[in-house]
Design a protein around this nucleic acid. Structure first.
Lengths: 131, 131, 131, 131
DNA sequence: GTGGTCTAGACCACC
DNA sequence: GTGGTCTAGACCACG
């Protein structure tokens, strides 16, 4: 499957999993009706405890992204793509907002902030990493 | 004093205090030789556990921003302004990096990211916000 | 046939099937001596695992609603209509009991609960709904 | 404290805890700003695993009923009473709806259903049980 | 095979 | 002391 987690990057593992599912849905590589890997399978392939995967899936369920189909697994809901695209925007926008806010509060001007972004976007290491 | 903390915003309180000291130094409102409030005074005025203020000061000391002046308390070091400006850059740059990284990984293009920043910079509520 | 199942509604599928058979018997649309569809046939038409249909029938057998007639399949017993009517009452009564119990425990008064029922009974969409 | 759980009533323990907190808030015995018992304390007094209590609290958090105050515990939010009263109604109404729906579908008339409720409300065992 | 729940016990950062 | 996260392993109902 197409999930990778970094156990030491500060973001909780269950959250990394949930985000990647959402990104995959937002990007179209997971479609409504698709089944997500089983808890046991994913936990094995990520070398992570089943409970951790389970928690990620549970949060996605309560967010309306996944639904259980009794005994057969979890699948992407019909409303998921919309919700995921919205959520993706919201998450990125919130983080961008808080960076800019802190930058301004710490005394940086718009010019400096823009140059900061330019530097980051020029970073060649970006395009390679697929989630 | 000019510190404000929000015990509910997810950022550790000691970290909020330490950042604000650093920003004040970077911005010049705290100068080398100035004394910071005593642990007891600040903890009272912020309604915060003294241990928490203490920890903030401890981190600032080990970062070379504060030094104890025997008997009289803690004051801003001579090298602090430089260090704080550098630290400020580093913190902002790291956060900007991680936002951009997530945005790209989630499938957004450089154009969209730039537009996101533009929107944020246009936000008129920026200068007013107190930490 | 006249069965409908919803694999996503939280009620076990075998239970949905068993209930519908019982309701049909209680209501007279299935009579003693009538044959129920074979496991294979019903499982195909409901797009459901044969084990699931099998389990529904097994429970109905052990409840005395169905009996095997050698070679030809399962049919409604002579005592089924009585048993189903009783069972229907019991199930509804139990559920009503537990709703009322929770309502009272959560602080609602008899008056509010009665008004709740009145609202539900007034709902015009009732008779139309298919299981 | 005022929580009781029944480990064998079919409702998940974490759910029983969460409901009781909500009912307590809806009924006013827990007010905004009040602290809820600590995870460890409640888990001890209910003879339940800390993770189970933790999960109950987590769900309440994501529902906006509780918020963490760093290092000091979890407290009732300002918006909780409203949310809990709404949630309480919603839960009871949904259950009443589904009972009535099943009753009607199984062939019972409004008269019989009303009489069912009357019987339940007359049950003297009701008033005693406090959650 | 599937998910859901629970227990037990550990480690972390924070106050 | 507090909550948050994770692991390990168990049991259940369901298909």
């Amino acid at each position: 499957m197409f999930f990778y987690i970094d156990p030491r990057n500060g973001i909780a593992i269950y959250d990394q999993i949930a985000r990647q599912v959402m990104f995959a849905v937002a990007g179209g590589s997971l479609q409504p009706g698709d089944r997500v890997p089983s808890v046991r399978e994913l936990s094995r392939s990520l070398a992570v405890n089943p409970n951790t995967v389970s928690r990620a899936y549970r949060e996605l369920q309560s967010g309306g992204i996944l639904e259980t189909v009794r005994g057969t697994g979890l699948e992407i809901t019909a409303t998921a793509p919309d919700a995921c695209r919205k959520e993706r925007w919201k998450m990125i926008r919130e983080r961008m907002h808080s960076v800019v806010e802190e930058a301004v509060r710490s005394g940086l001007g718009a010019k400096e902030i823009r140059s900061l972004l330019r530097t980051e976007l020029a970073n060649p290491a970006l395009r390679k990493t697929t989630p």
